[in-house]
Simulated scan of single mutants.
Amino acid sequence: MSGDSVPAEIRAVVFDVGRVLVQWDMRHLFARLIDDPARLDWFMAHVVTEEWHFEHDAGRDLVEMVAARKAQFPGHDDLIDAYATRFLDTIPGNVPGSHEIVRELAARCVPLFAITNFASSFWSEFRASQPLFDLFGDIVVSGDVKLVKPDPEIFELASRRFGHRPGSMLFVDDNAANVAAARTLGWQVHHFTDAARLRADLLKRGLLG
C-alpha cells in the first residue's frame, strides 16, 4: 500500500530499518544452534520472542533481561547468551532493492532520515558495519531515546530533530501500526511491502526520476 495521495511537496524521506532496509529474523540465528525443528519452534515461541526483544528496543537493560530470562527458562543459558552476543546473525542480508533506492534518493539530494526500533548496544554494533547510513542526516534509535514506534512521542521527537514538518516528510515502514500512527500525526506514509512498490510510489511522487 502506498500513500493515500500525491502531496504537493516532500522535503525528506524517513525510513524504518528492519525489514525495510535490512532483513531481520531471529530464527536465522537460532536455526543454526537448535537442530530439532519442534524445539526450535518452541524456543522462538516462548523464550527468545519478538515481544521480549522489543523490551530491549525500548531501553530495558540487556544484562538484566538476560539474567531474568535465564531464571525463567533454566537450561537454555547458552542460547539466551547467543541472543546477547550474536545479534548480527539475526540480520541475514539487505532487503532486495532498498539500498539502491536510498542511494538514488541521496544522489538527487533528497534529505534522508530514519526512525528505528533498535536497542542501543545492538545498533552501535550494526551501524559500524553499514556505510549506507552515512547518507542519512539523522537516525532516531528507540534504545537511545527510550521511546518506541508506534508511540506518537517518537514521531514528534523525530520531527523536531529532523527539522521538517510531518506533512513534508514521507515515512516508510513495514509495520501497519507504525504507519497508522505516523499518518494520524500528519506524516505522508508508505506501508512498505517490497522495493518495487516503494520505487513506484517514489516515482509517482516525483522523488525518483
Rank of each mutant, 00 (worst) to 15 (best):
A58Q: 08
V47S: 07
V47R: 12
W52Y: 11
I34Y: 05
R32L: 02
F54G: 02
P37K: 15
V66Y: 02
L33N: 03
H46P: 00
V63H: 11
T49C: 06
E51M: 06
D36C: 10
I34L: 04
L40I: 13
W52R: 15
V48Y: 07
F54S: 05
T49E: 04
E64D: 10
A38G: 03
D57E: 14
H56S: 09
H46N: 15
D36E: 10
E50H: 14
M44W: 08
A38N: 12
L40E: 08
H56G: 01
D41W: 12
E50G: 11
E64G: 01
M44R: 13
R39H: 12
I34V: 05
L40V: 09
E64Y: 01
E55T: 12
A45H: 13
H46F: 09
D41G: 11
E50Y: 15
M44H: 13
A58F: 01
L62V: 13
P37T: 10
W42K: 14
F43Q: 06
L62D: 04
F54H: 13
V63K: 12
H53D: 14
A58E: 02
L62Q: 06
R32F: 00
P37H: 14
L62C: 04
W52K: 15
F43T: 03
H56T: 04
E55N: 10
W42R: 15
V48T: 10
W52T: 04
G59D: 00
D36I: 07
L33F: 04
E64C: 03
E51T: 08
M65E: 02
F43N: 04
V66Q: 04
A38R: 15
I34E: 03
D61K: 06
D35Y: 09
D35E: 12
D61P: 07
M44Q: 13
H56F: 14
V47H: 11
V47L: 09
A31C: 07
V47W: 08
D41I: 03
L62A: 07
F54C: 03
D61N: 12
L40M: 11
A31I: 00
M65D: 01
F54E: 04
F43E: 05
D57S: 07
D35M: 09
A38T: 13
E64S: 09
V63P: 01
W42M: 09
R39I: 05
V48N: 07
M65Y: 01
V48M: 14
D41H: 15
I34C: 02
E50C: 07
E50A: 11
W52M: 08
D61W: 07
D35A: 15
D61T: 02
A58P: 01
V63C: 01
W52D: 03
L33T: 00
D61S: 08
F54M: 11
E50N: 14
E55P: 01
H46L: 08
H46S: 14
T49W: 10
H46K: 14
V66D: 00
I34W: 04
L62T: 10
E51I: 04
L62S: 05
E64K: 05
M44Y: 12
F54Y: 15
R32G: 00
D61Y: 06
D61H: 11
D61I: 02
F54W: 14
R32W: 00
D61M: 06
